[in-house]
Design a protein around this nucleic acid. Structure first.
Lengths: 209, 209
DNA sequence: AACTTTTTTAATCAAATGATTAAAAAAGTT
DNA sequence: AACTTTTTTAATCATTTGATTAAAAAAGTT
């Protein structure tokens, strides 16, 4: 059964497969997707997957890496912008990530479950430690702590709270929608509200009153 | 006849299977676990799973329901306690859930991914809407809003924020551990810190300064 | 002890699934 | 057009996996 219609009509076969693979992998994860699901989603013969990508695992590898790198790189740029303050960085992260996840709502759960299934493999290849610990963000944070502008000295709590407020509602989306009988658009409106609220909340949490 | 003894014997094998099934299902999810994994984990013959539970799906169903109901019921009791204030409820939720998830760290991702895989099936059977909307918690929240003690009028934001702050770090555990080279115990210490911090943060976010 | 019922085991089945193959079709080259 | 290379298809393979079966073993009953 088709999960959704393929996006591009004149895409090359390779691109059709990648697009279909993304759709299905995002929704079901690696183990639960069958190569036949992807072939059907792409409207192509099953053997073409192996012709172009050698195996299900190789195809997944490509999708996974692209997705993960895209996700990490965008936060990397924000965290390292010398021209924005800590406060502005929070605003930008909330704004950009909420918009991004509204467009690609399956990605957070996809990333988190695939990391669970294979923590070493993925995390070793991605320099998360360096991205966080050597960022302009961390320097700004430590300076603010020094100046007593911030009441929490551990940057991990700061980051976990921002990401928790931004990402968690999307992960719990079915529960939240079920709790109030919301449609997807009402849910998205609720998320868009949070783009303005989260920076205010974060400020209230961490700033000296 | 010795009913208790024979039942105990039955329960022993049955319990072994359930315990093993929990372990494996929590870690890998329904599709990715093979019945052979469960049999091996339990140290039992494969056919016994079907002898006692008819099928993999039925066994999963039981585990899933027990887990889910346990999770929901415990929050239900907290949300409906007439004797605790809103502020105390936040403290209790943070305290209890952080302790609970430290003991069973696989449960949040398990619940969230299985809901993704089968949203209707699960949510229709569990009266989440009633639990939230008819709770003492909601009444207390609305009263506080009325009295202008709380600056956010939508209880969903309140709930999402509490759960986001409590649950998200566990979901992102591998990333967080990787970001600072933490061992599990250092991670758990970080989470235990949050039992005290989260109520303070929530208060700062939502209370008039 | 003799018999019945319950539980466990080893062997096997049938369907699902990732992958391959050989041939056909299409595209590209001379 | 004649030939070569690339792409696509249908058929099939081999393995995995959930489930079943028939017989053995254990437990319970008389």
């Amino acid at each position: 059964m088709k999960v959704s219609e393929s996006k591009k009509k004149d895409a090359s076969t390779e691109e059709k497969i990648k697009t279909a693979a993304k759709t299905v992998f995002y929704k079901k994860g690696f183990t639960a997707t069958r190569t036949r699901d992807i072939a059907e989603e792409a409207g192509l013969n099953l053997a073409l997957l192996n012709y172009y990508f050698r195996s299900k695992a190789k195809l997944f590898e490509i999708i996974m890496t692209e997705t993960f790198v895209g996700f990490i790189d965008s936060i990397k740029v924000i965290l390292n912008d010398e021209k924005t303050s800590l406060e502005q960085k929070v605003e930008i992260i909330a704004e950009r990530y909420i918009d991004f996840i509204i467009k690609e709502p399956e990605i957070p759960v996809f990333i988190l479950t695939e990391i669970r299934n294979n923590p070493e493999g993925l995390l070793k290849r991605l320099p998360i430690r360096e991205i966080i610990n050597e960022s302009v963000f961390i320097k700004q944070f430590l300076t603010a702590v020094e100046k007593k502008e911030i009441t929490e000295s551990n940057p991990l709590h700061f980051l976990m709270n921002i990401l928790g407020l931004v990402v968690f509602p999307f992960i719990a989306k079915p529960i939240i929608m079920g709790s109030r009988n919301l449609e997807t658009e009402a849910f998205n409106d609720l998320m868009r509200e949070r783009k303005k609220k989260i920076p205010i909340w974060i400020k209230a949490m961490f700033t000296v009153a």
